[in-house]
Structure formats: structure tokens, C-alpha cells
């Protein structure tokens, strides 16, 4: 374990972007009440995501909508299988677009 904290200190979106910008090979493990999430990052991309029974981009959208929660960042496990390769900006902008269209 090399980093841990609360989403009240840094948002999930900012955490993902920062780790991706630094091109870290890392796994974010997060939990809130009974929900858990796991986001895998490598080479500046989100390469796998699981959250509340969802996988892929939908899992990232779920996590960044959490109003609070705790997280820890660990080294990317060697056995992780990449199921996607999406830049974080693409996921965050898509999440913002969906939110605007729901409101609008």
C-alpha cells in the first residue's frame, strides 16, 4: 500500500487523473458503505474497472458519482487483465455530458 485517503480530501476524478498523468501502474481500491470499487490504471489509461457490480466505463461513472468514501492506491497487480484502454479525460467528460443531459 502506498497511498490512502478519503474522497472528501481528493475526488475520485482528480485521483484517477493525477495517477494517469504520471502514467502510474496502479490500482485504486475504494469502498463506501457496502459498495466497493476497483480501478486499474497503466500507461496513462484506465485499463479495468469494477464498481457496484458494473464493469468498464460504467464502473468509473459509478465511482466518480460517489459523494464520499475511502480509498487506497496499491501497485498494479501483475495478474490484472486489461479489459479496456480509455484515457481518463474521455471517461470524465462522458460522465459530465450524461449529467448535463439528465439535468437539461
Amino acid at each position: 500500500m502506498f497511498l490512502q485517503g478519503s474522497f472528501s480530501t481528493i475526488s475520485a476524478a482528480a485521483l484517477i487523473q493525477t495517477l494517469c498523468t504520471e502514467r502510474r501502474a496502479a490500482q485504486i481500491e475504494a469502498w463506501r458503505e457496502k459498495a466497493t470499487a476497483r480501478i486499474c490504471l497503466d500507461e496513462g489509461m484506465v485499463i479495468a474497472a469494477h464498481c457496484e457490480g458494473h464493469e468498464g466505463p460504467e464502473a468509473v461513472f459509478r465511482l466518480i458519482s460517489w459523494p464520499d468514501g475511502l480509498f487506497r492506491v496499491v501497485r498494479l497487480p501483475v495478474h490484472v487483465e486489461a479489459t479496456m484502454a480509455v484515457p481518463p479525460e474521455e471517461l470524465l467528460l462522458e460522465a459530465a455530458r450524461r449529467r448535463d443531459e439528465q439535468i437539461g
Binding site: L92, L93, A96, R97, R99, D100, E101, I103, G104
Partner: peptide
């Protein structure tokens, strides 16, 4: 940024 009026949150994020 998306230009339409109702994409305000997206524009702010960008």
C-alpha cells in the same frame, strides 16, 4: 467545450 446552453457542468469541468 460543448456550446449548447445546458452543458454548463461540462464546460465548467473542462
Amino acid at each position: 467545450v460543448p456550446g449548447q446552453v445546458y452543458y454548463a457542468a461540462s464546460r465548467r469541468l473542462i
